[in-house]
Deep mutational scan, measured.
Amino acid sequence: MEVRTIKVFTTVDNINLHTQVVDMSMTYGQQFGPTYLDGADVTKIKPHNSHEGKTFYVLPNDDTLRVEAFEYYHTTDPSFLGRYMSALNHTKKWKYPQVNGLTSIKWADNNCYLATALLTLQQIELKFNPPALQDAYYRARAGEAANFCALILAYCNKTVGELGDVRETMSYLFQHANLDSCKRVLNVVCKTCGQQQTTLKGVEAVMYMGTLSYEQFKKGVQIPCTCGKQATKYLVQQESPFVMMSAPPAQYELKHGTFTCASEYTGNYQCGHYKHITSKETLYCIDGALLTKSSEYKGPITDVFYKENSYTTTIK
């Protein structure tokens, strides 16, 4: 009895394709271990004539594949690729409408935090270190965002349907971005203890939790000093293409032309909904596939993004 075979390709990165001759009487799992086709788990399936010449994702289970996976995804987590594939199996079914010149995501599976993050990423200057993220990001900007969303979920250790947080998501993504040249110098002034300067680099240099107003941050924000008295913390120097200011959701007025974009969060910790506000020729609110415009805006804002380049204080 002759062994019926077909020729397929296996890959971990969709760049390096490895030619395989597979036995049609055995499952993919018996031949390769966990195997995925377009995100779908085909591990328990036997090869079919229609699979001839198709590319299958496999887990990096030998040295060659491990090197290829690390170079593309910059992670050695053995569960990463499987999590990416199972997320992709959902995100490829989502709709990605162009809204006001940006790629958004039609609401499904509690994905409003991903839509808000995706919209924000198209408006701030950011370059990702893992080629996987950078490639998928370019495709997302062009309207094909399924891979990018699935990668975000995998890097953030999230599953489809789980509630997510924009600030946490951005923080994970910033860790995989090139923020080497970003720098922030802060000064804390206390009447009792004097003053202390701190220099922050990388992710810490672009994120701040405690106030939404970048102007206020430049002037000074009140913080408790270690001595128990009130101290003032203010920005001395900022070198970065953008800054992200966050605070627990509270009524906040966004003035046209003073910011790049913002995240609105309605609801409580267990259950809520994100919308995205962007400042173009007027203010726009993007909620999944829905767009509304207004000249002014007041609502429960939790993150505001500002364009920056270089700032030095005039406070002496």
Rank of each mutant, 00 (worst) to 15 (best):
A132F: 05
Y274A: 09
Y252F: 11
M244T: 04
F217P: 02
P249R: 05
L126M: 03
S25A: 12
G288M: 11
E162T: 07
M245D: 01
M209Q: 11
P34R: 09
T75F: 04
S171G: 11
F56W: 07
E215V: 04
Y96K: 07
I124N: 06
F80T: 05
A247W: 01
F128R: 03
E204Q: 14
Y208C: 08
A250T: 15
I45P: 06
K219Q: 13
K127P: 10
Y274S: 00
A289K: 00
V189I: 13
N147K: 13
F174C: 06
A231G: 01
A136W: 08
Q31M: 13
A115T: 08
D165C: 10
L163G: 07
D287H: 00
Y284S: 05
V8R: 06
T192S: 15
V188C: 10
E281R: 03
K46T: 15
Y311P: 07
L283H: 00
P300E: 09
F217E: 02
K275T: 09
E239D: 07
T103R: 08
Q196V: 10
K93L: 10
G272L: 00
I6H: 07
V58G: 06
R139C: 12
H90K: 15
H256D: 05
S240D: 01
K255P: 03
T35M: 15
Y306E: 00
N268P: 14
P241F: 04
Q98D: 07
R141L: 12
M207Q: 08
Y113L: 13
C112K: 01
V67I: 15
I152H: 01
I301M: 04
N309P: 10
R139L: 11
T75P: 08
L114Q: 09
N16H: 15
A247N: 03
T211F: 01
L291S: 15
K201R: 14
S310I: 13
V21D: 14
V22L: 11
N147C: 11
P34W: 08
P78T: 11
E168Y: 05
N157Y: 07
Q197K: 09
K106A: 15
L59V: 10
Q122V: 06
E162W: 05
A250R: 13
G194F: 04
K280S: 10
M244N: 01
A136N: 10
E52S: 13
D303K: 00
K46Y: 10
K307V: 13
C285G: 04
F128Q: 06
A87L: 05
N100G: 15
D109Q: 15
A117C: 11
Y113Q: 05
A140I: 13
K218I: 03
A145L: 05
Y155E: 03
V304T: 07
G228F: 08
H18F: 09
K233F: 08
V21F: 14
L102R: 03
G101P: 04
H273W: 00
N268L: 02
